[in-house]
Amino acid sequence: MTECRRWAAPLVWLALLLAACLGMAQLEGVFRWIEPDSRQVIYARADFLTLLGRHLSVVSVAAVLAILVGVGAAIAVTRERGRDFLPLVSQLASMGQTFPPVAVLALAVPVLGFGTLPIIVALLLYGLLPIVRNTLAGILGIDPAVREAARGMGMNGGQILRQVELPLAAPVILAGIRTSVTINIATAAIGATVGASNLGDPIISGIVNGNTAYVVQGALLIGLLAISVDSLFSRLQPASMR
């Protein structure tokens, strides 16, 4: 029973998200009130459930790449041979998030073309900072005495990393991944400007056509998706890290 209550919030938010995707047309009266002069107030160029799937796909691919690159780089610079590169990796990760995603798209489109690839690159760069910082904080924050105890038990460097450092740092690393993914769920909407179809489509279409109802629909679904995913991560983290 306790376990069911633990997952109740993510399931409720997910149910609301799916209900909004499937039943948006039923809210036409509400959106007609928002945009009374528009001939059409429900975005119909693509199915909302399809747009949700595309949005999740782009964010998921970018998140996996950011985790592999961010955690891998942070681990590398915490080893004896890579410590000299620790400031460089931290600075590069910081630059990736301070560089506007729109600027990344503007530079990437001439090279990569229109579609999902430019937005994946932008999300990858934008999502690295929280992952790198938290991985570094988690690993460097481990008490040196713990490592010494592991060496005293006969563990080598790889065993210490896999069996001691990563398990102890996992809650902090997961918090960084949570921040990265949640931010990128909202940021992914700009992919609609370069042909990457996702939940940003209604927002961009609404801005171009002056239809506030479209903008609200896209923003509502993205907000529900972000809350659903964040709620899921909160249940995966230990209580002390929430």
Rank of each mutant, 00 (worst) to 15 (best):
A93G: 13
A20S: 15
P144M: 11
I222D: 01
T50N: 07
S60T: 13
A122D: 10
S60R: 10
L105W: 05
I139C: 04
L221C: 07
Q91V: 13
S228N: 02
M153D: 14
I222W: 01
G191D: 03
V30Q: 00
R162G: 08
S205G: 12
L129Y: 10
Q91K: 13
E35N: 11
I119Q: 01
E28V: 02
V109L: 06
D47H: 15
S60H: 15
I131D: 01
Q97Y: 09
V104H: 05
Q97G: 11
V30L: 07
V215I: 14
L105Y: 03
A213M: 00
W7E: 03
A20T: 13
N198R: 06
I160F: 04
S38C: 08
I34N: 00
A213S: 11
M24V: 01
T116R: 11
R6A: 13
Q91A: 14
V71W: 02
V77Y: 08
L225V: 08
M1A: 14
F85V: 10
V208K: 10
D47T: 10
G72S: 08
I142C: 14
L220A: 14
L129N: 03
E35H: 10
A73M: 13
G29H: 01
G115Q: 05
A93E: 04
P100N: 14
V229R: 01
A76R: 04
G138H: 02
A62Q: 09
W13T: 05
T116A: 13
S38L: 05
V121H: 03
A150G: 08
N209R: 02
L117V: 13
M95I: 15
A192V: 06
P202S: 08
P171G: 05
D201Q: 12
S228L: 03
V58G: 04
L224S: 06
T135L: 03
L236V: 13
T78Y: 03
A188M: 03
R54N: 14
